[in-house]
């Protein structure tokens, strides 16, 4: 499997909000590695401040990292400018969370879907109109939706438009940042089904960013769990959800309210607040909240290391950034 996307050692910091000469910095990403295979879906899950959206923006070329590399199909994206960046962007398209905010309210649906065709001058204007109609059909909308404005659509329809617009330039990778978080469950199911169908039919890969573990579990081939700018665990979906190893992953899975009254939580899986990424904890970022911490956790930064023997060669290795490696759950 040649990787479509290969992220190595990505570091991003921002100036913290506020002013002053010696402003602190937000440590959004602190050395992140991630691999995504062609036609696969990699789920990226984490809570506020985990840096998952920043990672998505780096892959889209919308955020310049301080350090590290983003290889897309063998091409380094970091530092690309001008036409080279434009050429790569055709192949990496975003789908955003808020389907209303991601469509220009002044534009018709057709114009939004056409935006990348216009940018790259694909075909004649009538060709583009035809293509818009094909794309709308592909995402389950009728051609006359092209003349409507976003406010005239439901949330689910807007997200279909967002997906059609992302597909227009024929991307190999779609970076979807919380694409179904703003939608009701029944609509969410429709959009997830649509994305799965598009992946089957078009072979497009997804980097799927979400805070919702059950959604990530449903859509992903591989999953990475992020906490305060670091990936703490990466594995095959089945492997990760069946045998979570990192104490944070375990707590996160435990905290998800599952719709089964017989599987009620008897204790709070994780106490304390998520620390601020402005002043992240030393050593392992998770150590202040970790039930299993040992003395060295506050000093040493754990690296992602393979665990377990479950993986054969064609599986994604199960990687965990925790020196207190736990035995897999039965």
């Amino acid at each position: 499997m040649t990787a479509l996307l290969d992220v190595r050692g990505l570091v991003v910091t921002f100036p913290a909000p506020g002013s002053g000469l010696r402003r602190k910095r937000v440590h959004a990403l602190s050395g992140v590695d991630l691999t995504l295979g062609r036609g696969h879906t990699h789920g990226l899950v984490g809570e506020s401040g985990s840096g998952k959206s920043t990672l998505a923006r780096c892959v889209l070329g919308l955020q310049r990292p301080d350090d590290g590399s983003v290889l897309f199909d063998g091409t380094e994206i970091v530092g690309l400018r001008g036409s080279a960046l434009r050429d790569i962007r055709r192949r990496i398209q975003p789908v955003f969370q808020d389907p209303l905010g991601s469509l220009d309210p002044r534009w018709t649906v057709g114009r939004s879907v056409r935006e990348s065709l216009d940018a790259y001058g694909v075909g004649s204007p009538p060709d583009r109109e035809r293509r818009v109609r094909e794309l709308l059909d592909l995402v389950g909308l009728s051609p006359d939706h092209a003349d409507r404005h976003p406010v005239q659509l439901s949330g689910g329809q807007r997200q279909r438009v967002g997906i059609a617009a992302a597909l227009a330039s024929g991307p190999d990778l779609i970076v979807a940042d919380e694409p179904v978080s703003a939608l009701d469950v029944s609509v969410q199911a429709q959009i997830l089904n649509l994305m799965a169908r598009l992946q089957r039919d078009l072979g497009v890969a997804f980097l799927f960013v979400s805070h919702d573990l059950s959604v990530v579990e449903h859509v992903s081939d591989e999953v990475s769990v992020m906490y305060l700018g670091k990936i703490v665990e990466t594995a095959d979906r089945a492997d990760l959800f069946a045998n979570p190893v990192h104490p944070y992953t375990r707590a996160l899975l435990d905290a998800v309210p599952i719709p089964e009254p017989d599987a009620r939580l008897v204790h709070v899986p994780l106490s304390g607040d998520i620390p601020s990424p402005i002043d992240p904890p030393s050593g392992c970022r998770f150590h202040p909240r970790c039930p299993l911490r040992v003395d060295s956790c506050s000093r040493e930064r754990p690296a992602l290391t393979p665990v377990g023997t479950l993986n054969s060669a064609d599986h994604t290795p199960h990687l965990v950034a925790c020196p207190v490696v736990l035995p897999a759950r039965p």
């Binding site: 923006r57 889209l60 070329g61 919308l62 434009r86 962007r89 055709r90 990496i92 398209q93 975003p94 955003f96 969370q97 808020d98 905010g101 991601s102 469509l103 220009d104 939004s112 935006e115 990348s116 940018a119 790259y120 617009a165 227009a168 330039s169």
Partner: peptide
Amino acid sequence: HAGFVEGGRARGWSSFAVLRRH
């Protein structure tokens, strides 16, 4: 900060074009 502005850049338009269009 609206999604469609970032979207415009990701869809292949320059910053200036995004300013003008969105």
